[in-house]
Each structure stands twice: as structure tokens, then as C-alpha cells.
Design a protein around this nucleic acid. Structure first.
Lengths: 112, 112
DNA sequence: CGGCTATGGTCTGCAGTGCAGACCGGTCTG
DNA sequence: CAGACCGGTCTGCACTGCAGACCATAGCCG
């Protein structure tokens, strides 16, 4: 049986990255957010944010909708159902790790 | 005032790294753990584990005690007081981010 | 004795990744 | 027209995790 820490190894790096975790967490609180909002929220440069969004989209966690207001482009980002699930699982795993502490029995410790 | 997500940017990369987080979390559950125990727990190669421990030691989060059992070397690792604090702060920040969702007010969303 | 294993490293090299910033085309404002 | 905003793409840098090679020492086993 796996220790709770092998779950850590399974942590999805896509979600675990702080910038993307911020994006995902923000999205989980609203049905949509636009590009500029996310940029302000995370403090990322636009180029950087853009590439993070591409990665999240490729991972199927977010849906990107490019539209126009008048002739100005606006990019909306929304969590997909899968994204919502993955994020929930992520939080759950974190809690498991924290609670899993109680079952931990260090081996070979303090044994002469 | 900062959004809860700027805390994310401040997440200590030293702690956030999954392998090191596993080590720190394990250590927080016992006063000491030895090298082999940590290697089994995390599944890291010894070279890799060794370098993680060096980083944690340099960051002041753990104390490393090299001793002998008979003439076999044994390396014990323990969380420092600072390490314990940093880890506690880390978990706290995580909770803040999750709870901070409720105050989140997306800007410029759904505004034509 | 020789061969094998374990402990606990260091060091090298590879691959992947976050990030800033340059550049771009379009639009709108002063 | 100059400048700023929107939303990118692309390039290059720097860092980092990681495996695995190598090493020294010590014990076990036939």
C-alpha cells in the first residue's frame, strides 16, 4: 500500500505550478474571466500568461473563447468540467497528505 | 490591498516542490528521520534526495546530523524550528487561498 | 581471499520549464 | 500622426529536477 506521500509524486504538475493554480482557483470562483483580469490577478506578463493558458487548454482544464467587443478582441477563459474535477482532486489530495500524517510510522528511527 | 493570489506568488518554491514538501511533511510528524527512510518514503534516488536535503539545509528548514551506528554512517534529518514555522505558514496560505475565493470579484466579466 | 551489497554522498549532463521581453498586427484615443 | 491597449507568438536565458555514474567505507558470505 502506498504511503500518502506517493500521492505527492502524482501531483499534477500542470495544476501545481503556482501561477496556474492561481488561474484555476480564480476560475473556480466564477464562470468566466477575461485575459486582462487574469493578468492583473496573477501579475504575470501577458506573454507568460498566454503560454500558461495554452498549457491549461491543451491539458483540457480550461476553455478559451476569443471574441470581440466592437472590434476590440477580448479573450474569455473558463474552467471545463474536467478542470473543475482535477482541481477538486488536487485540493483533496493536499488534505489527504496533511491528514495522512497520523498514520505515519517512521522506520529505523532512534534504533541503535 | 493584495488579492489572495498574490500570496501564491510568494509561495516558497523551496517548500512547494513536491519532493521537498513530502520530506518536510514527513518530518513534521516525527522528531527525526533517517536518510533511508526518506528515500523509501519519497521514492527519490539517493543522489536526488541528497541534493534536496542540501537545499533544505541551506534554507535553514532542516538540520542534518551525520553519525555512526557502529562504523556504518547514518544520516538523520530533523525539522528546525524555522522549518516548522515555514511549513505551518505554507499550509495556512493554502487555506487562505481556498477560502479567499469567496471574496473574489472578477472584473470586466460579462460586461458588453 | 574475492565478490556482493549497503550507506551516503558528489558530480555531470540532459531535459523541461518559468519567465521577461522583443516583436507583431489590429484598434482606439488625443 | 504618436501613443497606448489588446492578445498574442517567439526567442533566449536561467534555473531546476532528475537519473545515473562514480567513489569511499564497511559488513556479509562462501
Amino acid at each position: 500500500m502506498p504511503t500518502p506521500f506517493e500521492h505527492l509524486a502524482a501531483f499534477d504538475r500542470l495544476v501545481h505550478e503556482p501561477a496556474r493554480l492561481a488561474i484555476l482557483t480564480a476560475l473556480s470562483a466564477c464562470e468566466k474571466a477575461d485575459f486582462v483580469f487574469l493578468r492583473n490577478l496573477t501579475g504575470l506578463t501577458k506573454g507568460n500568461l498566454s503560454s500558461h493558458l495554452v498549457k491549461l487548454e491543451q491539458g483540457g482544464l480550461v476553455a478559451i473563447e476569443k471574441t470581440f467587443v466592437g472590434k476590440q478582441p477580448i479573450t474569455y477563459v473558463a474552467l471545463t468540467g474536467e478542470g473543475r474535477d482535477v482541481l477538486k482532486t488536487y485540493w483533496k489530495r493536499f488534505d489527504q497528505v496533511r491528514k495522512g500524517l497520523r498514520q505515519l510510522k517512521p522506520l529505523r528511527v532512534n534504533q541503535p
